[in-house]
């Protein structure tokens, strides 16, 4: 761990200035402390965002929900409005980490959580994300945790968070404040970037950007939604695979609107458009669900360690659809 200075900041402008001067942000710190201890990151300064006053969940005039970036995961998981209207979000949050971690970790930080790829976390091994150009050890290595979707020859690291997967299903947006003070909304679906040949760049955030809030739009409040997470143990484990589904049925019981996303299998929260297309306009029954779920792994590139994720993804999506359709 490299020595660093600690700088609490009072507002977003101050945070931006520190970041432009080379600081890393810390909020809940649940991931940052690991990255520091393992020497994965060596910031000269940590700018503490906790004084920014960005916590809390509120309803906007149009019925959308606005979630402050510094809201703790547990607070969001327990929030009555969110639980009632967006179960996929609170189910994903409740399935995240452990109660202790959830009481510290923030929603904004969860969007930026770094990958759990074994090679990213062990500084004695090559990793393009940690050290661009050094090579990807996961391609031919221990890759049961790694991505089958969205990878490149440079990186197959999974974005490990649960919550953003639910947010993609809910068509949510992230509010960013740029270094110059301008605010802009970015769909969560396009917030994370594919690794391509620059796996070290993980999101569309620019230097000095600060996440202010997340907004779940009013139309998502009309949807039923659900999250299914598969992991190696019953709690406190990363998703081997997860599926988030949100949908609205019309008066005839046909799927009028639907968004499906997957986690644990891709380099970013992965929207499954083809699965949605297979079901839009149709009534959900077991056979249709099963056939639709097969499309979940379309385009998957499997390696010996993670080949299981292709069938697992299909099955997880199938399970989520069956459960939300009352067919389980």
């Amino acid at each position: 761990m490299q020595p660093f200075t600690y700088a609490p900041v009072a507002d977003a402008a101050g945070a931006a200035a520190r970041a432009l001067a080379g600081a890393q942000f810390i909020a809940g710190g649940t991931d940052m402390l690991q990255l520091l201890q393992e020497n994965v990151l060596q910031p000269g300064e940590l700018a503490d965002l906790n004084g920014l006053g960005l916590a809390g969940i509120g309803e906007e005039p149009d019925g959308a929900l606005r979630l402050g970036a510094l809201t703790r995961l547990q607070e969001a998981a327990d929030h009555p409005l969110l639980r009632e209207r967006c179960p996929v979000a609170t189910e994903a949050l409740a399935a995240t980490a452990s109660p202790m971690v959830r009481h510290m970790a923030t929603l904004g930080g969860n969007l930026l959580q770094r990958t759990r790829c074994l090679y990213f976390r062990d500084v004695s091994t090559p990793c393009n994300k940690r050290q661009p150009g050094s090579g990807c050890s996961a391609l031919e290595g221990e890759n049961r945790h790694n991505a089958i979707l969205g990878g490149s020859e440079h990186c197959i690291a999974v974005q490990p968070s649960d919550f953003p997967v639910a947010l993609v299903a809910l068509d949510a947006e992230v509010l960013l404040r740029g270094a110059e003070g301008a605010e802009r909304w970015v769909p969560v679906e396009s917030f994370h970037r594919l690794p391509g040949d620059t796996p070290e760049i993980e999101t569309v955030m620019r230097p000095g950007d600060v996440i202010l809030a997340i907004r779940i739009p009013s139309h998502a409040m009309r949807w039923r939604s659900h999250y299914v997470k598969v992991r190696d143990r019953a709690s406190f484990a990363w998703a081997l695979c997860s599926a988030a589904v949100a949908l609205r049925l019309d008066g005839e019981g046909r799927v009028a609107e639907m968004r499906v996303a997957a986690g644990g299998v891709a380099t970013k929260p992965w929207r499954l458009v083809r699965v949605e297309q297979e079901l839009l306009g149709h009534r959900m029954d077991r056979d249709r669900v099963r056939l639709a779920a097969v499309w979940a792994s379309e385009g998957a590139v499997a390696r010996p360690g993670n080949a299981y994720k292709a069938p697992l993804l299909q099955h997880t999506v199938e399970r989520a659809l069956l459960e939300i359709g009352g067919l389980a």
């Binding site: 690991q34 074994l118 062990d122 091994t125 221990e142 484990a237 990363w238």
Partner: peptide
């Protein structure tokens, strides 16, 4: 999770080397 290229255990932490938790 042993990587033969490095002769090393790669999941050398309690987030990836899993032992049972209460829920198990």
């Amino acid at each position: 999770e042993w990587d033969a290229r490095f002769g090393k255990v790669m999941n050398a932490n309690l987030a990836e080397y899993l032992v049972p938790v209460n829920a198990d």
